[in-house]
Design a protein around this nucleic acid. Sequence first.
RNA 1: CCGCCCUUAGCUCAGACUGGUAGAGCAGUCGACUGUAGAUCGACUUGCCCCCCGUUCAAAUCGGGGAGGGCGGACCA
Length: 331
Amino acid sequence: MDAYELLTRNAEEVVTDEEVRDLAEDAAGKRAYVGYEPSGVLHLGHLLTANKLIDLQEAGMEVVILLADVHAYLNEKGSFEDIRETAEQMKAQFLAYGLDEELTEFVYGSEFQLEDDYTLDLHHLERETTMNRAQRAMAEIQGDETAKVSHLVYPLMQTLDIEYLDLDLAVGGLDQRKVHMLAREKLPELDYEVRPAIHTPIVANLTDGEGKMSSSEGITISMEDSTDELEDKVNSAYCPPTRDPEPSEDGTERENPVLELFEYHVFPRFDEIVVERPEKYGGDLTYDDYEDLAADLESGDLHPADAKGTLATYLDELIAPGREKLYELRD
RNA sequence: CCGCCCUUAGCUCAGACUGGUAGAGCAGUCGACUGUAGAUCGACUUGCCCCCCGUUCAAAUCGGGGAGGGCGGACCA
């Protein structure tokens, strides 16, 4: 797989394709980042962007993971002590998941976001940005109630992070796109360079295939799930035998979350997927390509129940090292 | 600083005028049916009614005080 393909596979959006092609020309040593508000337990949403980071490392890029403690503080996620503790757990889980330690730099936001230059640039950016614009950038992340001033500062800091971390590429879930667009628009106004962005998809809600899987509601698969819990969760997932489910009664678009998990989490990390199946249902199946599996589900050659059992097995394997690390840290 | 509105189940809210310790929808849980889930049936669960004080035999409900949230006005030095 060439660098461009590694950079863009499974990406929902690439901004812009030309810039990313240029980057892929000479990817080795270039720096990409994702920022996370520290959380004690990684869930599949984190791992989806982590998969992309692994792709980038495979292409020779350096990866910066921003442990966004100041952002977490702005978002009222606890004291700096608590935030740091969960951040350290998060870091350990990422490494256990398979990020290359040599090519991964973990940076706390507070290491540079409280410096004079940064602060002054932040104020500059505040002058250049309307409240309306900042609020819209934050809407996806914030979700809930009335905006506070902290919520407006939040995306502005993300914008500056891209400059101050000396990056060549920003990575994030599609929920970050408005922030990244704001950054692309505003960085030049401060005489800084524009960087391309790559956005990963957001996996649909496991229960009903609608909207997106969220850690705040519905079922979330995370690093702390036991094998049994994981099997139960996958088994309860919405999974019609098609890759393109009908919209729900109220007209909401639906996806097949089981297929999405195969596509975005399983196939990128395994060369070969074996569906273990009793003789009575036709015996084992082997796939090395997502499309083949999806086609078999569609045609009925692969029953959803067998797909789910297989999915649970592989997800468990992906999560196991991080889970062990997490349990170890908690003792 | 002033005024108005809101706070009841996980969520959206009804109940308050006419006191008798609570309801609906959605969500959730469990069965049945499907070799998964969903859909569909069937059953079930859930509450410091924001807090404190008072009136009363009895307060989610009435009175007073307070907290949190929302909206508006004024000031324009």
